[in-house]
Design a protein around this nucleic acid. Structure first.
Lengths: 105, 105
DNA sequence: TCCTTTCATAGACAGAGATCGATACAGTAT
DNA sequence: ATACTGTATCGATCTCTGTCTATGAAAGGA
């Protein structure tokens, strides 16, 4: 999990090269959907969560939830592990912190 | 400019109602494009910026830059004022701070 | 007045993304 | 082995978004 050393939008701001723009935009894009915001929000309060619970919590099909989880996984904001039949998802605190720092925190 | 009292993704997290999900996703979506990240980044370092400078800084057509500025304006992240022929854009620090708080800051 | 400059808007188009049903795959139980 | 359950992936469809050209509106200068 690589960090984002660059600051985007805070008071002590340096110019961004094209790669940094892409990387930052990609991470914000991961949070640009209401369902994904809700998933991340839920993960932030429960520390670990089974996919079956997420499927039950949202009025969306199972493949759709799986798609959103893949987007979040690819962005590095969440990670998953399989234990037996079930898959469990967790937030990656460092990734969230990086995004916060990007906004000047 | 209304604030976002709710916290999404930090350690002290409460569940989000559908409206809050939409609002948060909309603000993150404003930063989900590399060009808009770069515009916000530039505004964060120059305090105020003429549209003509932005047009010159990016290899995109003038209407495209204008479109991105409208997206940022609608999201509340930037504001503009017209002085004579020129339009000037500024960051809205409170909006950026709200977004940062949303991530647990 | 007429022309030029600066910015915003409208309309069109291509590409990306959200959603679903169908299907594949991996564990578990019978 | 067979059947069942929980997830992931595939393929299709529909909507949204980024980009462009063309045009409009407002201000200033000849």
């Amino acid at each position: 999990m690589k960090t984002l050393p660059v600051i985007c939008c805070g008071p002590a701001t340096e110019a961004l090269d094209p790669d940094a723009r892409e990387t930052l935009a990609a991470r914000f894009r991961a949070l640009s959907d209401p369902t994904r915001v809700a998933i991340v929000n839920r993960l932030a309060s429960t520390d670990e969560c089974c996919v079956c619970d997420l499927n039950a919590a949202f009025d969306l099909s199972q493949p759709t939830i799986s798609h959103h989880l893949k987007v979040l996984r690819d962005s590095g904001l969440v990670e998953s592990s399989r234990r037996g039949t079930w898959a469990y998802y967790r937030l990656v605190p460092d990734a969230v912190r990086d995004l916060r720092h990007t906004l000047g925190g």
